[in-house]
């Protein structure tokens, strides 16, 4: 009996996963692959990491795999999808690298800094993994950008009375264990409930165990779109998350390159395209692109 029930649970989980995959990345539109710019290597000065990467023709990028619309890897797929991924492809193209030549490496919240710091050039060259810019992190690694500004909101059942963060005081609110979101909702007076993945929290909201979950609004919108009619995103953003690109402090020259490339993408429409083909599919309007921070003096 127990076995059968466990199997049922697994089937349910698998189903949820495949739904997630469909919702996010309809087969026809998985975000498009970009071709590397011609003669990119020539445009970089000798000795820069950009030149090395351009000449090598390959770049390693750390990303998330569990955030639909942002950084997501469906079971069985080779390449991840989402807004972070599209931005990564734009950066790679500027280095003259085809999207197909990017080496994708999964990073989780806890290993983003270690991956960037490992060895001389890092186990990964860049991290685009819903990586909030903070002073603490900037002491450890480089963070260029931001390329996205978002804020923490609440995801509740469609018929919920919760309108705002003030309504969850003393209530249990779910987010990923150890995440900034969980800490911030605790600071707002809610009881923090940590799970391994956002999808777990979605399930806990759906089955009524908790009344709300919280994280960046962009991520919540993806789930609301997946569970249309059952879940809704409520409340003003009660925190500011500035999502940036992580790089190794051994290669400070990367910062300016990343910022320039991002600004170019903001202007030429490729940033907007990246948004509409991923997060924008949940029906959100494309926001204004953020202003990038100045790079630290070399």
């Amino acid at each position: 009996m127990r076995l059968i029930r466990t199997k049922a649970a697994f089937a349910a989980a698998a189903l949820a996963f495949s739904l997630a995959a469909c919702g996010e990345a309809g087969n026809d539109d998985e975000g498009k692959d970009l071709e590397g710019k011609e003669d990119a290597a020539a445009s970089f000065e000798d000795g820069t990491r950009m030149k090395e990467l351009a000449e090598a023709g390959s770049v390693t990028i750390g990303h998330k795999t569990d955030q639909p619309g942002v950084g997501f890897l469906a079971a069985g797929d080779d390449a991840p999808t989402g807004f972070d991924i599209e931005i990564a492809k734009i950066l790679a193209a500027e280095l003259g690298i085809d999207s197909a030549d990017i080496k994708w490496v999964e990073t989780i919240s806890d290993n983003r800094e270690p991956f960037l710091k490992e060895g001389e050039n890092g186990k990964v060259d860049l991290v685009l993994a819903s990586y909030s810019i903070t002073d603490e992190r900037r002491a450890e690694v480089g963070q260029a950008g931001p390329y996205m500004e978002t804020g923490q909101q609440l995801l509740v059942k469609s018929d919920s009375d919760i309108d705002d963060v003030a309504d969850v005081k003393g209530k249990e609110v779910c987010s990923v264990t150890g995440s900034t979101s969980l800490e911030q909702i605790e600071a707002q007076g809610a009881k923090p409930v940590g799970f391994e993945a956002y999808s777990d929290c979605v399930e806990k909201v759906l089955d009524g165990t908790v009344e709300a979950m919280t994280t960046d609004g962009t991520i919540l919108m993806g789930y609301a779109a997946q569970n249309e009619g059952e879940l809704k995103v409520v409340g003003e953003e009660f925190s500011e998350e500035r999502i940036g690109v992580g790089y190794s402090l051994n290669n400070p020259e990367m910062c300016q390159f990343i910022n320039d490339t991002l600004e170019k993408a903001f202007e030429d429409g490729s940033w907007e395209e990246a948004f509409t083909s991923t997060l924008g599919k949940s029906g959100v309007e494309t926001p204004e692109p953020p202003a990038v921070d100045e790079c630290p003096a070399a």
Partner: peptide, 23 residues
Amino acid sequence: GVFGVMEALARMRILTNNFTGQK
């Protein structure tokens, strides 16, 4: 800690996430 209880591991992960340099 990854099933909704704010026990030692969950608290530790908040701290390591927050104070990256002191992991």
